[in-house]
Simulated scan of single mutants.
Amino acid sequence: MQAFISWSGEPTRTLGHELKEFIDTAFAGHVQSFLSDANIAPGERFNDVINDRLETSIIGIHLLARANMAEPWILFEGG
């Protein structure tokens, strides 16, 4: 099962890394978490990876703060 963690800017980026670590530890072998900041390698096509993970993830976790509620990436990944 895959979980997609959506974030935009600080502090949600930091929270995303903490949440990814928790999910990977607590649900090891059952849930694979995806965080763009941690799981997209340099040189990979960012949009292709994001689209693929959005299509294959069963769980979506959207980290919101007042500063990022209207950010295009949050709206795209949540939409």
Rank of each mutant, 00 (worst) to 15 (best):
residue 29 G to T: 01
residue 78 G to A: 05
residue 14 T to G: 05
residue 15 L to M: 08
residue 6 S to R: 10
residue 53 R to E: 07
residue 3 A to F: 04
residue 40 I to L: 03
residue 33 S to M: 01
residue 69 M to D: 14
residue 30 H to W: 15
residue 14 T to R: 04
residue 33 S to Y: 01
residue 55 E to T: 09
residue 35 L to D: 05
residue 27 F to G: 01
residue 75 L to E: 11
residue 73 W to N: 15
residue 62 H to C: 08
residue 1 M to I: 13
residue 46 F to S: 09
residue 3 A to N: 02
residue 16 G to S: 02
residue 43 G to F: 09
residue 54 L to C: 05
residue 36 S to E: 15
residue 5 I to C: 00
residue 42 P to G: 08
residue 18 E to R: 06
residue 19 L to W: 03
residue 21 E to H: 06
residue 54 L to P: 06
residue 60 G to A: 07
residue 7 W to N: 11
residue 63 L to K: 04
residue 45 R to F: 11
residue 44 E to L: 02
residue 46 F to E: 11
residue 6 S to G: 12
residue 21 E to N: 05
residue 24 D to W: 00
residue 74 I to A: 04
residue 23 I to C: 00
residue 13 R to N: 11
residue 79 G to C: 03
residue 36 S to K: 09
residue 51 N to T: 10
residue 28 A to T: 04
residue 32 Q to I: 03
residue 48 D to T: 10
residue 70 A to T: 15
residue 34 F to Y: 07
residue 5 I to L: 03
residue 8 S to K: 12
residue 77 E to S: 07
residue 20 K to L: 00
residue 11 P to T: 01
residue 7 W to R: 04
residue 37 D to S: 09
residue 73 W to A: 13
residue 64 L to C: 03
residue 13 R to D: 10
residue 56 T to P: 11
residue 7 W to Y: 14
residue 50 I to F: 11
residue 10 E to L: 02
residue 53 R to I: 03
residue 6 S to V: 09
residue 32 Q to D: 12
residue 60 G to N: 14
